[in-house]
Design a binder for these strands. Structure first.
Lengths: 233, 233
DNA sequence: CGCGAGCTTGACGTTGTTCAACTAGAGTGG
DNA sequence: CCACTCTAGTTGAACAACGTCAAGCTCGCG
């Protein structure tokens, strides 16, 4: 964790969504304790936020940016999920076990608030409703993983890639046209197929005018057709 | 939910593992309230305990038996996980959303205690440490789902089936030799492949004396070889 | 006995992976 | 400023893995 750039000063989380939500549940005193245990960090593209197998000592609030959850195998890599701000990261590990089940790393630049778990755990134990709220957030990521799992099991490559493009458009970039920060290989790791397969599928989708790719830029031209491919896959 | 056989009388959970654990966290009064909201049920092979898409009104304690978590698609079916008693079922849905993300059904006969969520939710909110314990349990099932997902993405059919046999042996039946209550089709739904593929793989494993199948009975003869197949897959 | 469900086997076609060759752009050093 | 190298992307072809289909089998049950 040495090369983490960041400003470790205490900061006022006045615009921070998480802080606002927390203030609904916590007392003045707990809120102050919480603030003492938060520090802000910036991560650049590719940097690891949580490392698979590492001890989970923090919970991370993704305030801006996009991250990927990836499971690292001997030789292969699998992207479980990709999410954009605002999200609570690391909660799944926190509520479960001491060691991270997977890594989380930045795609593009990310602003993150790190909360030390020691003190935070104490606050949590005193505030059951607050814990419930956090837990629900932590579970959201599992839902997307399970939906990905189902997509992988039941669909062919075309269907899965269509799924991924729709997911990225609707839930990550929130636009029909976006600048992909993922390599073809990473998309393949998300779809659970080879990178050549992603490229072939992109080529066909380009020919059929369903999408348009220009280098890293990707536009969805015919969303309904893409949805049909997703369904038929 | 009409044809649920069961005895709805209040019962004394004196041997019930869950009750014992709960007594470590809860006050006499809460424990009494909890007991009032529990009723015992018996489920037979194939019966549905929780139905995908249904409202989650209960949390279920699996006291004896084996259950499968399965996601139902238009035409296909996918088994996310198979677990044996003692386990807490439905917590994942409970702590997440109002509607069940997947179905849970009995494999063989199951003894289950159903807890009504209305009153139970109130007890939870007053007992943060207790809630944390329940969370941890609820998360266990997600870990197995994610590990299955990874197995599906990174391994070939042989490796996945080897994984499943090892999993069933170690975590479900707790024996090298067991009476399979799953059909070949269900194993295929767990492995995310066709039933013929399961049969072919079983045949080869039989030829190579890695396992022995006699109808529904299955014995693992050479565990280390099976582990090797799992690794190479 | 006859029927149906689950199981088994082998053949065949499709899908997807792997491999190899090529292109384009970015960074490096003489 | 050009050659070199490295990485990402692209394409097509060969091969292996897997799903689908068809046919026959076994067993339990009405």
């Amino acid at each position: 964790m040495k090369d983490r750039p960041g400003n470790k000063d205490l900061h006022l989380c006045s615009q921070c969504l998480f802080y606002k939500q927390s203030s609904l549940f916590l007392s003045e005193k707990d809120l102050h304790n919480l603030e003492k245990n938060i520090h802000q960090l910036k991560f650049r593209h590719g940097e690891t936020i949580f490392k698979q197998g590492d001890k989970s000592r923090h919970i991370a609030l993704l305030n801006s940016g996009i991250v990927k959850f990836n499971f690292e195998d001997k030789d292969r890599n699998l992207i479980l999920s990709i999410v954009s701000a605002p999200k609570i990261l690391g909660g799944a590990n926190m509520f479960y076990r001491q060691r991270n089940l997977f890594s989380i790393s930045a795609i593009g630049d990310c602003d993150i608030c790190m909360i030390d778990m020691q003190e935070f755990g104490e606050i949590l134990k005193q505030n059951a409703k607050y814990m419930l709220m956090l837990f629900e957030r932590a579970m959201e990521m599992f839902e997307t993983s399970i939906l990905n799992y189902i997509s992988l099991a039941n669909k062919n490559v075309n269907g899965r890639i269509a799924d991924i493009l729709l997911y990225l458009s609707e839930h990550v970039y929130k636009s029909e046209s976006f600048h992909l920060l993922l390599t073809r290989k990473e998309i393949a790791e998300f779809a659970g197929c080879s990178k050549e397969n992603v490229i072939h599928t992109f080529s066909h989708l380009n020919e059929d005018k369903v999408i348009r790719t220009e280098g890293k830029n990707l536009s969805i031209l015919d969303k309904s057709k893409l949805q049909m491919i997703s369904r038929l896959g």
